[in-house]
Design a protein around this nucleic acid. Sequence first.
DNA 1: ACTTGACTCTTACCTTACGTCATAGTGTAT
DNA 2: ATACACTATGACGTAAGGTAAGAGTCAAGT
Lengths: 256, 256
Amino acid sequence: MERYSVKQLSRLAGVSVRTLHLYDQIGLLKPAIRTEARYRLYGREQLLRLQQILLYKELDFSLHEIGRILDKPGFDKLKALEQHKTALEARRNRLSTLLQTLDKTISHVKNNTMLTPEELYEGLPKETAEAYRNEASAKYGADALATSENYLRQLSKADFAKLKEESKEIASTLFAMRQQNPESEPVQKLIARHYAIIRQFWGTANSADPQAEAYEGLGQLYVSDERFTLVDGQAQPEYALFMSKAMGYFAKNSLT
Amino acid sequence: MERYSVKQLSRLAGVSVRTLHLYDQIGLLKPAIRTEARYRLYGREQLLRLQQILLYKELDFSLHEIGRILDKPGFDKLKALEQHKTALEARRNRLSTLLQTLDKTISHVKNNTMLTPEELYEGLPKETAEAYRNEASAKYGADALATSENYLRQLSKADFAKLKEESKEIASTLFAMRQQNPESEPVQKLIARHYAIIRQFWGTANSADPQAEAYEGLGQLYVSDERFTLVDGQAQPEYALFMSKAMGYFAKNSLT
DNA sequence: ACTTGACTCTTACCTTACGTCATAGTGTAT
DNA sequence: ATACACTATGACGTAAGGTAAGAGTCAAGT
């Protein structure tokens, strides 16, 4: 009569000793006998039952269900199997749509993101772009600038285009308005709008809250820079400076 | 400025209040402010973040991972997504093979099982079968007989055929031996063998252990019945009686 | 006989993402 | 003032074990 210790049985069946302890505890697989020292000893019969258990576990039944299936023969075995099948099918379907979503998300991220640094400043002569970057870097720190640029680069192209569009529009409106009165209400509103836009793209990614202080600072930034210019009645692509400054500012104020 | 209470936000996002409590607790989604009575109030920003959280949860990330992803933008977001994709694919594949196994198991059970009551007693005239069933029923109770019949019916056809074969053979050998000496050693051995066979088909399904007592009772059963007959030197299909009696006995002794 | 190393026992706390109370305080409409 | 809906905190429970602590056991080598 073969007797297996917990370790031996665990090796034979490929489960952990703890698992055998657990199965004993919940009455799913009791040892054939216990020695005087309460060592568990299993026989061939228990090995067979364990293999049955593992089969059903493979089929993803819960231990509770396995117990019920194994302890009353026949009857609802088929029903249980079929019930379980529909459950598994539901899970597989969910997984499939999940994977589709994931694929879409990935390809979205992959194709629409990671603009090259050049794309970030497209439309500007290289030297001009460099000059702006240096200025922003000096003002807000290289880290802040890098952070903001990295953030911008991982926007989707569509989002970036939208951001550019809105920034351009605001810059041009702002320019027009500054001619009149920098403190005027509409200017404040515009700033608020741009703030909201940037926040939106900046997203919920940053837990730090810039709050009113940053908001105010942003207003200062807008009205104090002389270079919101129009050429031939059109806003120049100063949005690059605009954005690098604004984003730099945000980055700085968001970094604890 | 919209402010949402826990309940309102929970309805908006389709999660439970407890979930919001939890997310607050683990720092995944903090309310915008707390009232004096420590009521949580959320803003639009928190709603957006919650929706992001739910997106990633949909993609089956753990809350911990979601926190990491949301709290540092960009960077390894893509890597995380792709890693996760392979993980999900592995799971889907496992599910698929699992479903195949299940299908096979089900069709096996379906096609090879559930003999009709007639098949159980095939080869016997109806009246004879009825007479045997009545006898067994009277002796062991209708419940016990039903249990044993139900058990038999869910055996695979192959298994049932094997069981029939072995029972027939043993019945015939037993008959031959009873001519000589009922108490002889070989008879005991035969009984033991049949006991083992029945146990095997009865399987590990029954946790109750009939033990030595039942074993002895089975021996009595065999030697005390007069009807193990041979016709033309062949064992008659008395296995039906044989089995209904034996299984009835088992069922009775296994039912606590 | 003694020690070492490999096992084994029980007990109990940890994990995920919440569900489900229990108890107590709060807000509001009648 | 009271009823009713809402909220907060704390605690325990879930599934299937992992991990560890503290203590006992077994066989082999010295």
